[in-house]
Write a protein that binds this DNA or RNA. Structure first.
Length: 509
RNA sequence: GCGCUUGUAGCUCAGGGGUAGAGCACUCGGCUUUUAACCGAUUGGUCGUGCGUUCAAAUCGCACCAGGCGCACCA
């Protein structure tokens, strides 16, 4: 501090100047024998509790009820006569009548700054203007801040806030202080994840944590992050799915098991993609994908109602109705509906012959990457149908070539018992009647391994221990995965995945 | 990874070859017993970074860095 005082102001950046001013006040507070960073403070009420409790207090009415509150100063008016104090429940105004205040406190007030955390004791009153206030008798500094909070001006109106979206994500603590909706979104996210766990725990599921560090990153098609374990001197991968370990747990005798947790995929970043994101996967013995559809629909309806108190939710201007029974339709029927092409008779045909059919050529889709009719179907679906599925829709019975972990369809050959849930054109959930036949599973993963060897970085890897587990017997099992971040986006009307992740991945500055 | 676009004071933004601007915030002073208070004064900036063009660059060009949006990949 002492060297700073001798430094000319001209050598300082503005931010340093503002900080120095607060350091000066900090020193002053210390010199008064006050600890600017005390250990504990006991309050009697939160802001919201007071607002509710004194809802019926009339304008200008005063009580003798003494209360103690604590929070952060967001604003001050008329030389500290009015202070807007915020805690995590909301706002309460402090009223400082300097004529009646202890002289020491009057002298202390100018040492405060917006952003400081304080505790206050006083009596409850409603001002003539109708603002519930605490008529202050004591103020305790709880934390002296050194940096000013960001403020924005709209018209002539000034309030706390940040327009710069980069700052909002990089310095999320600031965003949370000054942007009420940011805080609300994360609060809702917590409500959603807690709601999901509650729902599942109540019907007999248990949550078990499976490894993040794996020697084979299996269970999905994605590029993994690679890391290294020093003591073992081996390459390890961050998990891309929880699927294979959870199914091992079902082999081990857990009949209803899930994990809600972080997974990692080494792919692009966008408004809908963060390299680490949260999924829930759950597995239920003796269930099939029809059971999983019922569970998915009921689960999402339940959390939606919890969070929004309604099943009609707007997403970026589009009304989405979660209430009506969700449409259940096969992938082939949807393709037929949107393109007029019926793939059912083409299943099992030679892929080149299929691509040469006039009605396929007319679709004007690049199918050169599709090495099978199944892959062609998936591609046509993605190109022509996916983005149109705005209202909740279960898309059922995917081709076998693109679903290596799903059981063959019980009646239609070439298809599997799988569904994906689409809302707002996004895949929200993915589910199968899990493949339990160890010989079939081995054959399908070996097929994937061939693709991987041929250079497909995203093909499934061959996890031999998983195959071994299946040979010890996986009962009929329904499995389900839900992308939590996108679900939260939908239920909180958030345009970017970064809004629903507290600390989204950013390039270092 | 590609395309478009943005980066100027603590915050929000103007300025687009000729001495770096405004509002608010901060600081100081005045007025006021009051609710975006008001009035006045002073502060405050390597114009994202680097290299170039030019007598002269915040401004023009190129490269790089970071963000946003779109595309690709994907959930």
């Amino acid at each position: 501090m002492s060297t700073k005082e001798t430094t000319p102001h001209t050598d300082h950046h503005e931010s340093t100047r503002l900080r120095d001013e607060r350091l000066r006040k900090l020193e002053k507070i210390k010199s008064l024998g006050i600890d600017p960073y005390p250990y504990k403070f006991t309050r009697t009420h939160k802001a919201k509790e007071l607002q509710e409790k004194y809802q019926h207090l009339e304008n200008s009415q005063e009580t003798t009820d003494s209360v103690t509150v604590a929070g952060r100063i967001h604003n001050e008016r008329n030389d500290w006569m009015f202070i807007d104090l915020y805690d995590d429940s909301g706002k309460i105004q402090l009223y400082c009548d300097k004529e009646k205040l202890d002289q020491k406190l009057v002298e202390f007030l100018p040492l405060l700054d917006k952003g400081d955390q304080i505790g206050a004791v006083g009596t409850v009153r409603r001002t003539p203007r109708g603002e519930l206030s605490i008529k202050v008798t004591e103020i305790t500094i709880l934390c002296k801040t050194l940096l000013p909070l960001p403020e924005i001006i709209e018209g002539k109106r000034r309030h706390l806030g940040i327009h710069d979206i980069e700052t909002r994500y990089r310095q999320r603590y600031l965003d949370l202080i000054v942007t009420p909706t940011s805080k609300e979104t994360l609060r809702k996210r917590a409500l959603i994840t807690a709601g999901i766990r509650n729902y599942l725990n109540n019907i007999g599921y248990i949550e078990i944590e499976t490894p993040v560090l794996q020697t084979e990153a299996g269970g999905a098609e994605a590029k993994p992050f690679v890391t290294h374990h020093n003591a073992l001197d081996i390459e390890l991968f961050l998990r891309i799915a929880t699927e294979l370990h959870l199914k091992r747990l079902v082999v081990g005798g857990f009949e209803k098991v899930y994990e809600l947790g972080r997974i990692f995929r080494n792919e692009g970043i966008s408004t809908r993609h963060n390299p680490e994101f949260t999924s829930i996967e759950l597995y239920e013995a003796y269930a099939d994908y029809h059971d999983m559809m019922n569970l998915t629909e009921d689960l999402i309806k339940t959390v939606c109602k919890n969070v929004n108190e309604t099943l009609q939710v707007e997403f970026q201007g589009k009304p989405i109705d979660y209430e009506k029974p969700w449409k259940r339709v096969t992938m082939l029927d949807l393709i037929k509906e949107h393109t007029g092409v019926d793939f059912a008779p083409l299943l099992g045909k030679n892929v080149k012959e299929v691509h040469d059919l006039p009605q396929i050529k007319n679709l004007k889709i690049n199918l050169s990457e599709c090495g099978s009719v199944g892959e062609t179907i998936a591609e046509v679906f993605e190109e022509k149908v996916e983005s149109k599925l705005i209202q909740p829709t279960f898309v059922m019975d995917h081709p076998i070539e693109t679903s290596p972990l799903a059981k063959k369809h019980r009646t239609t050959s070439g298809l599997t018992e799988r569904f994906e849930l689409f809302i707002n054109g996004w895949e929200i959930a993915n589910s199968f009647s899990e493949l339990t036949d160890p010989l079939d599973q081995r054959a399908r993963l070996e097929e994937q391994a061939k693709k991987k060897d041929a250079g497909d970085e995203e093909a499934h890897s061959l996890d031999l221990d998983f195959i071994t587990a299946l040979e010890y017997g996986l009962p009929p099992t329904g499995g389900l995965g839900i992308g939590i971040d996108r679900l939260v986006m939908l239920l909180t009307n958030s345009a970017s995945i970064r809004d629903v992740i507290a600390f989204p991945t950013m390039k270092p500055v």
